[in-house]
Structures are given as C-alpha cells and as structure tokens.
Simulated scan of single mutants.
Amino acid sequence: MNIGFSWRTGAVFVLLILGFWAYQFRDLFTVYEQLKGKMSVNDELTLYITQAASSSLSKDTYRYYLYDAKKSPDDFMAHIKDVEPIMVTDDYKANAEVRDGQLDLYVRGNVYSFRNVGYSVRIHLDAALY
C-alpha cells in the first residue's frame, strides 16, 4: 500500500477552505436595499427612495430612483438592479419636493452621484455640506 500526497485531494481541500473563508465575508460585497418612501412626480414617473446598507463597516446610503408610475412598488423592487439611481447620498434627512412639474432635491451631506438627463421632468439639486 502506497500512501502519498495527492495533488487533486490537496487542491480540493484548499478550494474548500478558501470557499469557507470567502463565505464569511459575503456581506462586505452584498448591498441590501429597502424601500423608504415614494412620491408621485407626474403621470409618468414616481420617485422611489431606498436605504442601501452594504455592511456594518460602511455608512448607509440613500438612493433616489425615477420609475414608471404605472408599475407597483413591488415591481420596482423586483427590478431595482436594472434601474440606475438619479442620486446617491448619505443624508438621511434629504428632502424631495415636486413643484410646477419639476423635482427639487435638497441635500445637506455628501452626494456620491447625481444625474438629471433622460427624463421627462426637470430635476434641480440644492446640495451643501453639513
């Protein structure tokens, strides 16, 4: 009987150990979003606000999305990965207001991203640091 080291067995063992180790850190790479609010902008668009938490090591962010007004919040959450937010901020007190068919966003904090093109509504951002 010849007992020796098998490279295949060793490689499988190392892959199992690496997989177990990587599984422990899965929350560092996963973003969890929950719906915080919604507001009707016009007949075509609804503004959805979500709170995104990726891990206990990072700050929560708040994401603002414009989505089809004819669809439900459940449909929005089911397709959230396919929709790009118009704004991402860390300000939990950020405010949105619809006036004269325009969307006004008020932020006192960090704005990580903002875009206002490609929609049938004008978007105005009033942002300042704390």
Rank of each mutant, 00 (worst) to 15 (best):
M1W: 13
M1G: 13
N2W: 06
F5M: 11
S6P: 12
S6C: 11
T9G: 02
A11T: 15
L16Y: 10
I17E: 07
F20G: 15
F20I: 14
R26E: 12
R26Y: 11
L28T: 02
L28R: 02
F29V: 09
F29G: 09
Q34M: 08
L35C: 03
L35S: 06
L35T: 01
K36L: 07
G37E: 10
M39E: 11
D43P: 06
L45K: 05
T46K: 09
T46S: 15
I49Q: 13
T50K: 07
A52Q: 11
S55Q: 03
S58P: 03
D60A: 05
R63P: 00
R63E: 02
Y64G: 01
Y65N: 01
Y67M: 14
A69G: 06
K70M: 02
S72E: 10
S72M: 10
S72D: 13
P73I: 07
D75M: 13
F76Y: 02
H79W: 00
V83T: 05
P85H: 01
M87H: 01
M87I: 11
V88W: 00
T89Q: 00
D90T: 14
D91H: 01
K93A: 12
A94E: 04
A94F: 12
A96R: 01
V107G: 02
R108L: 08
N110Q: 13
V111S: 00
V111D: 00
V121F: 06
V121P: 05
I123A: 04
D126E: 08
A127S: 14
